[in-house]
Design a protein around this nucleic acid. Structure first.
Length: 270
DNA sequence: ACTATGTCCTGCGAGC
DNA sequence: TGCTCGCAGGACATAG
């Protein structure tokens, strides 16, 4: 589900609400657990840790944790929401949603709940998380252009490659390519410098505006408060197959690239 | 090193 | 109403 703007929204919400709180205990409920490291290690690492800060890196939520007493070292709790994951702040009395896989009890009396129907999400604890690719909102144009040099893969697939850029997913790749006027099947290396400039600024604009609107809610996505985003109302191509282009009235096309559906306007995008 | 493909999971809506 | 099919915001492993 969640791409950079959704994860950013969730992380900001979590930071506002649980930074400073303390994880008292952890329940890991589902089997197999949606974990990268053994359940016991994760539970032990989270227990009795203060949440110093919650932030986003790529599509990952990063909880910066500090030990309560001297002795153990700082660690990071890394949460990836996969396609359908959500991380909710709730009261212990609230009904436990189906597919709740983990719950952290907080000293304030509240709970952090990880819910994920499709189970593509992952939890892990490490010392220092380093994202594989560059942050799309921070990268310079020159570095951005360099990412696609010599790549024969379609530009759409290159945008989704997290080792190049961290955080871009199917929605925002399609929306950025529309704003750049570039068809998703074009070979990455074939883009002209002008097209790369359009893609660079189109991607930044789309991500920035989506963050402002709290992300896109298609079916599952909600923030840490359970609220939906509004950027889906601004989609120009994603999910609009057969509908008319808002710029030129041509019908929007849907094709499959690398197993992912891709939406574009055959007239506006070259 | 890069690229294309299949697989992991559950749920929902469309079509019959 | 009930079924089967296709599809879904992601990321890996694997094979070429």
């Amino acid at each position: 589900m969640p791409e950079l703007p959704e994860v950013e929204t969730v992380a900001r919400g979590l930071n506002q609400r649980v930074a400073g709180d303390v994880i008292e205990s952890v329940w890991l409920g589902s089997k197999p657990e949606p974990l990268k490291s053994p359940a016991r290690e994760i539970a032990a690492a989270l227990q009795s840790k203060k949440i110093a800060r919650v932030r986003r890196s790529g599509k990952h939520i990063v909880f910066d944790l500090e030990p309560l007493a001297n002795g153990s070292s700082s660690v990071q709790w890394i949460v990836h929401l996969g396609m359908t994951g959500s991380m909710l702040v709730s009261t212990p009395e609230a009904d436990r949603e189906k597919h709740t896989h983990a719950i952290a009890q907080l000293a304030s009396g509240r709970e952090l709940r990880f819910v994920d129907p499709r189970r593509f999400g992952r939890l892990s604890v490490i010392e220092k998380f380093s994202p594989p690719g560059a942050e799309p909102l921070d990268i310079s144009f020159e570095d951005f252009a360099k990412l696609f040099r010599g790549r024969k893969t379609p530009i759409k697939s290159a945008l989704l490659n997290q080792k190049l850029l961290s955080g871009v997913g199917n929605i925002y790749a399609d929306e950025a390519l529309f704003r750049a006027g570039v068809r998703p099947r074009r070979r990455a290396s074939s883009l002209t410098r002008d097209e790369l400039r359009g893609l660079y600024s189109g991607l930044k604009r789309v991500l920035t505006q989506a963050i402002k609107l709290g992300g896109s809610s298609i079916s599952d996505y909600v923030d840490s408060n359970g609220d939906e985003g509004f950027f889906q109302l601004k989609h120009r191509v994603y999910g609009r197959e057969g509908k008319v282009c808002l710029v030129c009235k041509a019908p929007i096309k849907r094709i499959v690239i690398g197993g992912r559906s891709s939406h574009y306007c055959p007239k506006c995008q070259k």
